[in-house]
Design a protein around this nucleic acid. Structure first.
Lengths: 335, 335
DNA sequence: ACGTATTTTTGAAGCGCTTCAAAAGTAGAC
DNA sequence: GTCTACTTTTGAAGCGCTTCAAAAATACGT
């Protein structure tokens, strides 16, 4: 920067103004300085800038699992809002590993980003609280705020489970099977609770069977489908509430391969609106989580904290959305 | 840090040594300082540190498409090596958008990261070259190095296409169909070239038909499958070389739904070894790209440049791997 | 031409750390 | 007790920028 100043024949302060405050410098000087910048290929040193102003105009997002498109959607939402605010977004993948999550939280704190977004794993968030206590804004995504002390954006999983189940009931299905797991995942447990509520409202007209799986994968779904196919037809459910699209996909594939009609014999609804659900051989009805909107909402909360807009900490709960496709309503891809 | 020094009754330099050079400070002093650090909850300011040493011990990775698990694999490989070297990895998603790609390249340059990894989009890399010319190490991933001036890690797409096709030929298939597109994607074009080479070697015993698609999605695959199913059986191919697993998945699903047996009537091979390929109703044979290894290789090249190990710029070409599953060999998931 | 108000530019003080030559402290040998 | 060789600590300079009070330049009114 000193080189630029010398070449343009002005002082350091003026060069700084050209970069951060062009309105205040005279037309002619501005041009001179900009020419010098171009000729020298000067790249401002953000590190020095951050040190001088005391913070970076960057936010960090620690993501639990980049392989899950839901989180990538959230990241996209965050970035939209960040873009609009002229703030840059840095990502870090904690890869479902608590140590990495903590390590990246530290990195962001040490890097003095303006704020941190955290899509955490299902575990205690001691490190995040520590950081928050040291005045660094931290907002949770896909996780509630800690009561009154921090903000969070979540989606109402219980309502999602309820909505999915209600959809099947309204289609006249009466023997429902809920597949998903492990139930130690709070999201799965909430979805199940919602499903149960929908069934209870029917006061005995509808039954709900539970099939807990180890994981929420296509492979687990294949097993679920196989299990159903191996039953005598009159013991099969007529509706399958699946805690994830991947699971639903596997189940559908094995079932139709075994001659069970979907949705004729068994209607299937998934969860997550994963990218492949719409493109499936039988497009899968599902519960969509508004990932992009969640990202925007979380970023908004974070910016409020950063700018210290007077603001009570809160948890924003977003509603999941029923997306009806052929796996419950019967039109098929051949249309 | 001054607070820590005061509290521990030592000088600034000593605190700095405790943090960066603990070996050099006396046992007793070390303990004193560390206690002070804990009591004060001191978090070293990386920004100041970076400014003082002239660079951050962080590398940046600009990724063209986070939604593609292949790149997430690469990122994981990069991170493995970065971890081992005590360097932190920051991610930025350019989301198939050249402006964003450039913007994040700039961010990393201005942040004085030690080096940049770039998985670029299929477009001119002027910004990256500019940055490289200013002495910032930049290594390409999934893109060749610029002749002699920069490094890159790629996978031999032509060989992948050849290997896939050869696999079908060795299984006795003779009427092959290559599906994929658009051909303007250099990866697709190379895979096709490889497929053609394999067929040419058979000197007329095998034919290859080309079906160009708009995209490499499941939806496009469904259309491919439908197209094949609608033909009279004797005009159908007996082997399908698909330029992507998603495409293969769609094709397989519609074909088996239409009563075509896979691989009995038509053997299908995909490309990419995407996560869902193994879990498919008919697990999909495919060409695996060694994403994690590519990430490691790229990170290694980058570290060479960063540490200025004498090093000629080169492009590392990795070999794709044939992964044989049921969509070509006929065992099915029911086993 | 002069004084006042306004616009521009200046330059020095920091931001919080690392670095390194020099100073201070310690240990062992005689 | 003194010297030498080594270990440990110190403190000031500097990394490249922002900031802001003060100085300089310019504009305006009379």
């Amino acid at each position: 920067m000193a080189d630029v100043a010398r070449r343009a024949g002005v002082s350091l302060g003026t060069v700084s103004n050209v970069i951060n405050n062009p309105g205040v410098v005279a037309e002619r000087t501005l041009r001179k300085v900009q020419d010098a910048i171009d000729e020298l290929g000067f790249v401002p040193n953000q590190v020095a800038r951050s040190l001088a102003v005391g913070h970076a105009n960057t936010i960090g997002f620690v993501i639990v699992d980049l392989a899950n498109s839901y989180f990538v959607d959230i990241a996209r939402g965050v970035e939209e809002l960040a873009d609009e605010s002229g703030v840059r977004l840095l990502l870090a993948n904690s890869d479902v590993d608590l140590a990495k999550q903590d390590s990246y939280l530290e990195l962001f704190e040490e890097s003095r980003v303006s704020g941190i977004l955290l899509a955490p794993l299902d575990a205690p968030l001691t490190r995040a609280e520590q950081i928050r206590r040291r005045q660094m804004p931290v907002v949770h995504v896909n996780w509630p705020g800690v009561d009154g002390e921090s903000c969070g954006v979540v989606v109402d999983e219980e309502l999602g489970g309820y909505t999915a189940t209600r959809h099947l009931i309204e289609l006249g299905r009466q023997r429902l099977l809920f597949a998903g797991g492990p139930l130690s995942l709070s999201a799965v447990a909430s979805r199940l609770t919602g499903a149960r509520r929908a069934v209870e409202e029917e006061q005995g007209r509808v039954t709900l069977e539970l099939l807990e799986t180890d994981r929420l994968t296509v492979a687990a779904g294949l097993a679920v489908g196989r299990g159903i196919a191996n039953r005598p037809p009159d013991e099969r459910p007529d509706g399958l509430v699946s805690a994830a699209d991947a699971l639903a996909s596997g189940a559908i594939q094995t079932m139709i391969y075994s001659g069970i009609e979907v949705p004729g014999d068994i209607a299937v609804i998934g969860y997550d609106n994963n990218h492949f659900a719409a493109d499936h051989v039988i497009p899968i009805s599902t519960i969509g989580q508004p990932g992009v909107d969640m990202g925007r909402a979380a970023a908004k909360l974070l910016f409020e904290e950063i700018t210290r807009v007077p603001h009570v900490h809160r948890t924003i709960t977003m509603n999941p959305e029923l997306i009806v496709r052929e796996s419950t309503t019967g039109r098929t891809w051949t249309d």
